[in-house]
Write a protein that binds this DNA or RNA. Structure first.
Length: 425
RNA sequence: GGAUGGGUGGCCGAGCGGUUUAAGGCACCGGUCUUGAAAACCGGCGAGGGUGCAAGCUCUCCGUGAGUUCGAAUCUCACCCCAUCCGCCA
């Protein structure tokens, strides 16, 4: 959501930003409506001011017991005209807001050009891809070989894009989530939150899922939305609030299920656990001071990377190009983990600085010590990590020729000391 | 789900058709006093929009949305949320 003023002041720069995302210019339509709206608004206010003045006179006359019927008639006459202008002004404003609420965030200056993932830029990598003396299996073969990953029965219960985990893998899933939460809360100062998984329209609007991306979400029969990520409830904690400047940044984390309809992904990643309707994720959210959100973004990305380092998983960090970013972001790093079973890097985290885009939508501000006006906070979010994909990565990277899987050191305390997953487990 | 009582500025809280231009307090900011601080006293202090070079003028906002009225925080209706009790329930 944007400030109309920056569009008025610099329409070309605004449209240029949209063009970098591959979007057509929006400012001509907006500015035309804006001009009409301001004209109607100004006219309506003149009439309102006049009426307010006369009504006050009526009050004064009546309180003295006088006859005000003359003035009352004059006010009544201008009422219809005023009503029309007010209605027109509010209709025009609603039209403008509808346009504005569908426009994605503008890319930051240091975001590379590009229209899709091919435009993304390598930033750094870490770890060494494992070499195998045998042909590495993918996580489906490994999981089913262990007898602990069951897509057939998940299909019976729920259909495609679900999985049933049992025994060692079920516990590994839980271990991963716990390990990540402990890392972020103990080492990096994030506060653990257990948020609602169902949210209202306003909440989904605040982070930008609504109005444009309703198709990606599941909706309950009473009109609520299942969260597609804990970013939604965590970020909205500051909605409609004026927070204390000294309290920034707020660093929040949550381990939650996420629900996605995957409406646009028919036929994509149909095999395995990569793309599910339901998955667990540990999310990081920062509510940051606008002057420090860039540093916070780098820090958050490092927090996510640390999970992979400790899990002994090779990865690379990519800076997304303008055309590949999510709608709310002005800058995004994706972290891609190496998957030997796919012989490819796959996204396991996405860390975004949303600037004030979401803060404006949800009206989240702080009062600066210097200066009188409130300012919008900056919001950031990152996965750290997607637990299902992390499990896939652990299985594929730490597999052995006999189909067993070594459990990374840092997870062993969470697995009751277990060092290897074997079919009997 | 039923009943009752409520939602007022950063916070608390008064107001329940017309000097409300939303009292008062807390917090915060500035000043006086003080060696310094505290206390006390004095002053300032809501948000958003329109207009204007500016000073300013002006509009909107008392949970949300409609309505009644010349005039609504105040009256009506619907909805949302909170509290308490009852019912149901993990």
């Amino acid at each position: 959501m944007f400030d109309l003023k920056i569009i008025r002041d610099n329409p070309d720069a605004f449209d240029h930003g949209l063009a970098r995302r591959g979007k057509p210019p929006q400012t001509p339509a907006i500015l035309a409506l804006d001009k009409e709206w301001r004209a109607a608004q100004t006219k309506a206010e003149v009439l309102q001011a006049e009426r307010n003045k006369l009504s006050r006179e009526i009050g004064a006359i009546k309180s003295k017991g006088g006859d005000a019927s003359d003035i009352m008639r004059r006010v009544a006459e201008s009422k219809e005209e005023e009503g029309k202008l007010e209605a027109e002004a509010s209709r025009l404003k609603a039209d403008i807001d509808a346009l504005l609420s569908g426009i994605p965030n503008l890319p930051a200056d240091d975001v590379p050009e590009g229209k899709d993932e091919h435009g993304n830029v390598f930033v750094r990598d870490h770890g060494v891809k494992p070499t195998f003396s045998f042909k590495p299996k993918d996580h489906v073969a490994l999981g089913e070989g262990l007898g602990q990953m069951d897509f057939a029965r998940a299909g019976k219960l729920s259909g495609a894009r679900f999985v049933v985990l049992r025994a060692g893998l079920a516990r590994l899933e839980r271990a991963l989530g716990q390990f990540m939460l402990d890392l972020h809360t103990r080492e990096y100062g994030y506060t653990e939150i257990a948020p609602p998984l169902l949210v209202r329209d306003e909440t989904a609007f605040g982070t930008g899922q609504l109005p444009k991306f309703a198709d990606d979400l599941f909706k309950t029969t009473n009109g609520m939305w299942l969260i597609p990520t804990a970013e939604v409830p965590l970020t909205n904690l500051v909605a409609d609030e004026i927070v204390d400047e000294a309290s920034l940044p707020h660093r929040l984390t949550a381990w939650t299920p996420c629900f996605r309809s995957e409406a646009g992904a028919a036929g994509k990643d149909t095999r395995g656990m990569i793309r599910q309707h339901q998955f667990n994720k540990v999310e990081l959210v920062s509510i940051a001071h606008p002057d420090h959100s860039n540093d916070e973004h780098e820090r958050m990305t490092r927090c996510a990377e640390e999970v992979l380092k400790q899990l002994e998983l090779p990865y690379r960090v990519m800076l997304l190009c303008a055309g590949d970013m999510g709608a709310a972001a002005c800058k995004t790093y994706d972290i891609e983990v190496w998957l030997p079973g796919q012989d490819a890097y796959r996204e396991i985290s996405s860390c975004s600085n949303c600037g004030e885009y979401q803060a404006r939508r949800m009206n989240a501000r702080f009062r600066p010590k210097e200066g009188k006006r409130t300012r919008f906070v900056h919001t950031l979010n990152g996965s750290a990590l997607a637990v299902g994909r992390a499990m896939v990565a652990v299985l594929e990277n730490h597999q052995r020729e006999d189909g067993s899987v070594a459990i990374p050191n840092v997870l062993r305390p969470y697995m009751g000391g277990l060092e290897v997953l074997r079919p009997d487990g």
